[in-house]
Amino acid sequence: MSKNTPKIAVVTDFDGTLMEQDVGDVLMEELGIVHAPQVMEASQLFREKKVGSLAWIEAAYPLLASRQLEVDQLLKSVHLRDGALEFLDFCEQKEVPVTVLSDGMQYYIEQILRSQQVQVTKVIGNPITYSAAGQFQFGVQNTNPACQWCGCCKASVVKQMKADGWLIMYIGDGSSDYYGSAFADWIFARASLANYLREEGTAYYPFETFHDILAILRANWPMYQDGTAAGRLSGRYPSACQFPVS
């Protein structure tokens, strides 16, 4: 790669994107956590857009504290989205780094990637995990002092990658990805993210499997390399996102 060639990086959501299922939802539903009073209240406030994911995460995830064995068992029932391995192989061949960026629990992301023998460049999620001794550890990834809406501030991560000179292909499906994709160059979207972008009038590539994404990339790779591929965005700034004044 020449010094004048833009650097391309992929940022992909995990739940409902790289994975066929929303793993966090599977855990919460199968373990009955969605029915806990504080979780029901947080869910209602989230649906009403009175709180962001941070409030829901703080209500729900601590209830996994003593349930590691049950969590591990449920993780055996989920699987990667069709074409994900082929897509990651394509990225490796093209020397494109892949960051998994999630508002979910870092423990299950790392467990699944390890069990599926999936290699990515980086995993960024909420530092919620079990120690080697089985002790539950809770944390969030939001280091943005100006905004405490999301557990993981995806917009901050992508914003920094752009500042570091990367062209970003963002892949996602949910509400946190609406913010995460705000600074991306190209967006591949499905489910609620696609609905948000369509209502907003923002260009995106629809997909259901990673084979759909691969078909687009293989047919147009030279244009992605030089930054001229169709659908490139100049920057969106969701009103909910706030950043420190520099």
Rank of each mutant, 00 (worst) to 15 (best):
G165E: 04
A146G: 14
K154G: 09
E86F: 00
Q38I: 06
L217A: 13
Q135Y: 05
V245F: 03
Q117A: 14
A146N: 09
G32C: 08
V118A: 08
T5C: 09
L113I: 05
V157K: 05
G16I: 15
L113M: 10
S192K: 15
G172F: 05
E95F: 01
I128A: 03
Q135W: 06
Y204P: 13
N4C: 00
G151D: 03
M40A: 15
M40I: 10
A229S: 04
H79M: 03
G24L: 08
P6F: 02
G201S: 11
S43D: 09
P97D: 06
P145I: 03
A60M: 00
G52Q: 07
Q68M: 14
W149E: 00
T17W: 01
K162Y: 00
A155D: 08
D25N: 13
L197Y: 07
S2G: 14
Y205L: 06
G151R: 08
H35R: 13
E48Q: 15
P238R: 01
Q137H: 05
F183M: 13
S192L: 12
Q38S: 09
F46I: 04
L233E: 05
L101A: 03
F188I: 04
E200S: 15
A132T: 06
C241W: 15
C150V: 11
L88C: 07
W221V: 12
I213P: 07
S246L: 09
D72L: 14
C91P: 07
P145D: 02
V98W: 09
Q111D: 12
A194G: 04
R47H: 11
Y205W: 13
V245S: 11
A155P: 02
L85A: 07
F14T: 04
A84W: 00
P37S: 02
H79W: 03
W186P: 10
A55V: 11
E58H: 12
R198F: 11
V71F: 10
D72K: 14
C150R: 14
D72F: 12
Q111W: 12
A55D: 08
A240Q: 15
M169N: 11
V96R: 15
A84G: 01
Y196I: 05
G165W: 00
M169E: 08
Q160M: 00
V100N: 02
Q137M: 01
M223W: 04
C150E: 13
F183I: 00
Q73M: 08
Q160D: 08
Y108H: 14
F136T: 02
A194R: 09
V23C: 14
Q225M: 02
F183P: 06
Y178I: 07
G139D: 14
L64R: 09
M169I: 15
T99F: 13
P6T: 03
S77G: 01
R218D: 04
S102P: 00
D72P: 13
L75G: 06
F207L: 12
D177G: 03
A203E: 11
F138L: 13
A42S: 14
D72E: 15
G83A: 06
D226V: 08
Q160T: 02
D164K: 07
C152H: 08
F90L: 08
R81E: 04
Q225C: 00
F188K: 09
Q93I: 10
